[in-house]
Amino acid sequence: MLTEFFRPSGLTTKRITETTFVVEKKVTEKASLLVEYVGDYPVNASPSHLLNSGGLYHLSPTQQVDFHVAFGLNHNAHCVCRKLDSAILMVKAAKDRS
């Protein structure tokens, strides 16, 4: 996927182009594992590259828990990042509108 970020208040970098490539494997009906490459290419700065891996578990049709571990692939990227979060999916809101 290709994403453009615009930060008008950014002092040095107002625009960042981000590329991602994800491989995801459904392990069970409720659980998936993923590996993702993330490349951030800011204007007027050096790029950073990450390898992100993790999993997700669907608690219900509208809730999931994610776990991610990311490793920087070059000196501009973070060394190690860990994240555990939950998300309330917008599936229910979309169903209610129809």
Rank of each mutant, 00 (worst) to 15 (best):
F6S: 15
P8I: 05
L11T: 14
L11I: 14
T13L: 02
K14C: 01
R15E: 14
R15T: 09
T17I: 09
T17S: 12
T19K: 14
T20H: 06
T20R: 12
F21I: 04
F21Q: 05
K25A: 09
V27I: 05
T28H: 04
T28C: 04
E29T: 11
A31G: 04
S32R: 12
S32P: 11
L34F: 15
E36G: 05
V38N: 10
V38Y: 09
G39R: 05
D40T: 12
Y41N: 14
V43S: 06
N44L: 10
S46Y: 09
P47C: 04
P47F: 04
N52T: 10
N52D: 07
G54N: 02
G55Q: 01
Y57W: 03
Y57L: 11
L59Y: 02
L59R: 00
S60C: 09
P61C: 00
Q63H: 03
Q63P: 01
Q63A: 12
Q64N: 00
Q64C: 05
Q64L: 06
Q64T: 08
V65N: 01
F67Y: 06
H68M: 06
V69Y: 11
A70S: 07
F71Q: 10
L73V: 01
N74C: 03
A77V: 02
R82Y: 15
R82A: 14
K83W: 08
K83C: 09
D85C: 12
A87L: 11
I88W: 10
I88D: 12
L89E: 02
V91E: 11
K92V: 09
K92R: 14
S98A: 10
